[in-house]
Each structure stands twice: as structure tokens, then as C-alpha cells.
């Protein structure tokens, strides 16, 4: 299965790279005008800039020049900042990864206990409160949640900074990232909690669990067995949520000025910075494909029957 997935990996990345390359050049907007700020430069100046960035060559030639360099690890330089794209990605990718992983862990820390409690207290007021509450958070767009978070925790209460990612690996970093993590996590918990709750309810009624309970196995041990199986759909959901999370990190990044891939992407799209946009989109495609592969591996580990 893994080999089959890996084999599909290459054509997906190539297809995405061709699509984004063409899409960028089909939409109106010319990077040369961005580079000259609309100042009245002559045609000779514009022609020089086109030559410099290979924009004077036919589309097919441009693509192969770019793809050839990309395979060798040279993603070109940003038209806007003139920084190497690999350097820009090197600076912003760790930020996004921290955001993603932190948000994910926080969401699981919230949703696993909530899902289990809701399942065990099925139909109770608490169960309804958990389901209702997580749905409310799901319905708030991440962008709005981010601004609300800043309003409450930075503007009114002045507990947390409203922007930046902090320094070092200690309290300063935590102080800066807790709000972005929280915003991202809240958006993810609804689906996770509800999936886990449904999974637990299903598993708790299975024969092997009833049999285990009948043999007098302690409740805690029974729950551990049940949870392991019930987590499979949660992990699958995470795979689906990954795409949503990427959009989420773009928005969170935008609101909190963290300097991750999201902020870089928004800036590059606004500035028609072709090399940066291409690199980010292809990287997201790779990450997305890799994430679905990882989900399959984790599911297999949790429940070896998975994928059979």
C-alpha cells in the first residue's frame, strides 16, 4: 500500500507544479509592473527585467527552466525581496510546523477527554454541552476567532501579546504562541470530539468489550482498549483536517504576524512573486500527500486490520 502511495506521489507533485505554474500566468497582473512600482520606466528597462527573470521566454521553456532548477534544489529568488526562496522557506517552514504541531496536540488534548466523557455520559446534559460547545467553536471562522482572541486576551485583558512568535524556547515563546495554537485547536476539536464520541459509543457496545467487562476487567483497562480502536477514525479525520489546517495556519499566521508560510504566501500572492508562490504550493502538495501517507501508517499501527 505504501509503495502504491509513494508511486502516486511523483505524478501528483508534477501535476500540481504544472497547474500552479499555468494558473499564475493566466491571471492578470505582471510582476514587472510590481518591480517598477508603476513608475514611468521605459520599455528597455522592462525588457531588461523580463530577461533577468526569464519572463521573456515561452511558457514551456519557463516551466522546464524552473522545474530543472527546482529538482536540483534551486527554487530561484523572490522577485520582491531578492532573498533565495529556499532561505525564505527555511525561515518560515519551522514556524508553520510549530503552529501545526502545537495546534494539533492542543486540539487532541482537548478533544480526547471531551470525546471520551461525552461517550460515557451519552445523552446527559454534559454530553450535550460538549457537543454544542465544540460545534460553536467549529462555526466561528478561524480569522474571526483570531481577532476575537486578540481583542479579549491582548486588547482587553492585556495578558498575551498580539503578534510575533517570541524568542527562544521558553516562556516568551509560549506566551506568544498559546493564542495562535488555541485558535487553531478550537477549530479542530469539534470534528475530533464528535468522531471520537461516535467511535467510543460504537466500540463500547462491541462484543469483545462487553466480554472483557463481563470477565471483570477493570473499567480503566477496558476504556484503554476501546480508545485505541476508537482513535482510528479520529486519525483519519486528522488526515482530512490537514488541508483545513493549512488554510487555518495561513489565517492564523496572517492575524498574528508570525512569519510562517501563511504570511509569506499572502505577501507573495499580493506581489505576484511567482517563484515563492510556486515553491509554497508545491511544498503544500508534498506535505498534504505525505500527511495522508502518515495517517495510513498510524491507522495501521492502531488497528492492523485497517486498509485490509
Amino acid at each position: 500500500m505504501i509503495l502504491r502511495r509513494l508511486a502516486a506521489f511523483v505524478p501528483i507533485v508534477i501535476a500540481v507544479s504544472v497547474l500552479i505554474f499555468l494558473a499564475l500566468r493566466v491571471v492578470p497582473g505582471d510582476p514587472v509592473t510590481v518591480l517598477t512600482a508603476g513608475s514611468p520606466v521605459g520599455e528597455d528597462v522592462k525588457a531588461q527585467l523580463r530577461r533577468e527573470f526569464d519572463l521573456d521566454k515561452p511558457l514551456v521553456a519557463q516551466y522546464f527552466l524552473w522545474a530543472g532548477d527546482a529538482i536540483r534544489g534551486d527554487l530561484g529568488i523572490s522577485l520582491k525581496s531578492r532573498v533565495e526562496v529556499t532561505e525564505l522557506l527555511g525561515q518560515s517552514f519551522p514556524v508553520t510546523l510549530t503552529l501545526l504541531v502545537g495546534g494539533l496536540i492542543l486540539s487532541l488534548l482537548i478533544s480526547i477527554p471531551l470525546g471520551v466523557i461525552a461517550a460515557l455520559r451519552q445523552g446527559s446534559l454534559l454530553d450535550q454541552a460538549i457537543i454544542g460547545g465544540t460545534l460553536v467553536f467549529l462555526s466561528i471562522p478561524i480569522f474571526t476567532a483570531g481577532i476575537l482572541g486578540i481583542l479579549v486576551f491582548s486588547f482587553w485583558l492585556d495578558w498575551l501579546p498580539s503578534f510575533g512568535r517570541g524568542d527562544g524556547f521558553g516562556l516568551d515563546r509560549l506566551e506568544h504562541l498559546i493564542l495562535p495554537w488555541g485558535v487553531l485547536a478550537l477549530a479542530l476539536t469539534a470534528a475530533q470530539t464528535n468522531t471520537l464520541r461516535a467511535g467510543m459509543l460504537d466500540v463500547l457496545n462491541r462484543d469483545y468489550i462487553l466480554a472483557a467487562e463481563g470477565r471483570g476487567l477493570r473499567r480503566r483497562a477496558v476504556l484503554r482498549h476501546a480508545l485505541r480502536t476508537a482513535l482510528v477514525p479520529v486519525v483519519t479525520i486528522l488526515g482530512v483536517q490537514f488541508g483545513y489546517m493549512i488554510v487555518g495556519t495561513v489565517l492564523v499566521d496572517y492575524v498574528f504576524g508570525l512569519g510562517g508560510i501563511g504570511q509569506l504566501l499572502v505577501d507573495s500572492v499580493n506581489q505576484r512573486d511567482y517563484p515563492v508562490i510556486q515553491a509554497i504550493v508545491v511544498m503544500i502538495a508534498i506535505a498534504f500527500t505525505a500527511a495522508t501517507l502518515l495517517v495510513d501508517l498510524v491507522c495501521n499501527w492502531l488497528d492492523p486490520r485497517y486498509g485490509e
Binding site: 483570531g146 481577532i147 486578540i150 481583542l151 491582548s154 486588547f155 498580539s162 504576524g257
Partner: peptide, 9 residues
């Protein structure tokens, strides 16, 4: 990017 963030800052 976001004015709320700047104003809050």
C-alpha cells in the same frame, strides 16, 4: 497584516 493586531499592539 491585520489592523486589530496592530491596534492591540
Amino acid at each position: 497584516k491585520d489592523p486589530t493586531t496592530t491596534i492591540s499592539g
